[in-house]
């Protein structure tokens, strides 16, 4: 299981993790998890950012005399230490013992918990229930809901042999959840259509 970062901020509904390597961010919508037993938390990556390590100090443009982007980093290696990549994950479930729950855990994640990208098998298992869609739709997030929902479904579908079948089933669930919001439904379906 690939480790992608470490929790640096946590609340009941979400956590923020910093990547160990600059730009080594898990993709938007991917399923990640923390593993501090006895409760493992599942999250869906809804936002990511790369910023200056020191708050208030913004990087400045440096490439005027360089031919490629890589050369900027090569000629100023300290840059990798001055910048950081971090991502936010919305908590969508947890595992306690050997049971998987598609609702919020009793406690938030602990700071410095390691964060992993879930394996396809685990994604497959998690995607057996679409309850998480309700959490995604009702969360107030800085990213457009339809983008996030579509991204997470596209990500998850890769863990299924019958990708289309998975997406149709998810689409049907959304059609019911979004019964009163036809425009949003259409926007999502347009982003996951096969």
């Amino acid at each position: 299981m690939e480790r992608v970062g470490e929790v640096i901020e946590a609340s009941t509904t979400e956590f923020v993790a910093q990547c160990y390597e600059l730009y080594q961010l898990p993709p938007l919508g991917s399923l990640v998890k923390t593993r501090d037993l006895p409760v493992e938390l599942y999250g869906i990556v809804y936002n990511a950012a790369t910023t200056s390590l020191e708050p208030g100090r913004r990087p400045i443009a440096r490439g005027k005399d360089e031919a490629t982007e890589e050369e900027i980093y090569r000629s100023s290696p300290q840059l990798l230490k001055l910048l950081r990549s971090e991502f936010n994950a919305l908590v969508v479930g947890h595992r306690q013992g050997d049971r998987l729950y598609h609702h919020l855990p009793p406690q938030p994640a602990r700071i410095h918990s390691f964060v992993y990208l879930c394996s396809p098998e685990e994604v497959n298992e998690f995607g057996q229930s679409f309850d998480f869609l309700n959490i995604l739709i009702n969360a107030h997030l800085p990213v457009p809901t339809e983008e996030l929902v579509a991204a997470s479904l596209r990500q998850m579908s890769q863990a299924y042999e019958d990708r289309r079948g998975f997406l149709v089933a998810a689409g049907k669930e959304l059609a019911i959840l979004l019964g009163g919001n036809l425009n949003q439904l259409k926007a999502i379906l347009g982003r996951i259509r096969q």
Binding site: G171, I176, L182, R193
Partner: peptide, 26 residues
């Protein structure tokens, strides 16, 4: 129809994916 608006702005059912999703739900 779950939502009467569907009748006014019919979805693109020439897309089999959309058609399949909407049958039995919306």
């Amino acid at each position: 129809l779950i939502d009467q608006k569907l009748a006014l702005t019919p979805p693109d059912v020439s897309d089999p994916f959309i058609a399949e999703v909407l049958t039995g739900t919306s």
